[in-house]
Design a protein around this nucleic acid. Structure first.
Lengths: 95, 95
DNA sequence: ACAGCTTACGTCAAACGTAATAATT
DNA sequence: AATTATTACGTTTGACGTAAGCTGT
């Protein structure tokens, strides 16, 4: 289970369609379709309603989406802490 | 970047050595060695001091470890919410 | 010798893009 | 026609175990 799949899911929800999200992310729509299928399989929940005009969160999807945002926020926090600590270890301090 | 790598890191820290963690997890020590190498590369921080009697968190590692525990907690929360919502959608309610 | 971590090598699963398909506006 | 999501196919990336190596107790 890759972190990237969660980030894909977030962008898809915010973009409202796989195509728009794919253009934002620079990947192909099929990548996002499969990534979200995998997420739904692994969590055992249908996250999105697929219409012909895009996608929309299901009720369950709304609950999960909120948690996934928290997950991604912490992940970005970890990466930034890594950058900060990594450069600090080499003597560079940004104020 | 896989979620599993974060979980590996956590167990390694708690076990105190790659070998013990490998036995706990049912994987080989090389898997854990590489997983932690990847984590350190991707975050740009040295997380563990490798001794001949095991491993120990570096100062930076301690900071990151605390955040990674939060990440894993949310991840497990998401999985449990998935189970709960998934079975609820099929009409099964556990009280 | 034993316990520890690491690395080279081969294998297998999984992620991806391309391209084709189907449905809707 | 244009835009939507999905799926089959082949390629490539990457995660893993085995086995060998090196170090310190």
């Amino acid at each position: 289970m890759r972190l990237r799949g969660f980030e894909y899911f977030r962008i898809v929800v915010e973009a409202g369609s796989l195509g728009r999200a794919a253009r934002c992310l620079g990947v192909s729509p099929s990548t996002l379709s499969r990534a979200i299928d995998n997420l739904e399989d692994e969590l055992g929940v249908t996250l999105l309603e697929r219409n012909k005009r895009g996608v929309r969160l299901t009720c369950s999807g709304r609950v999960i989406f909120s948690k996934i945002r928290d997950l991604i926020d912490i992940f970005h926090d970890i990466k930034m802490a890594g950058q900060s600590l990594g450069s600090a270890a080499r003597g560079i301090i940004n104020i």
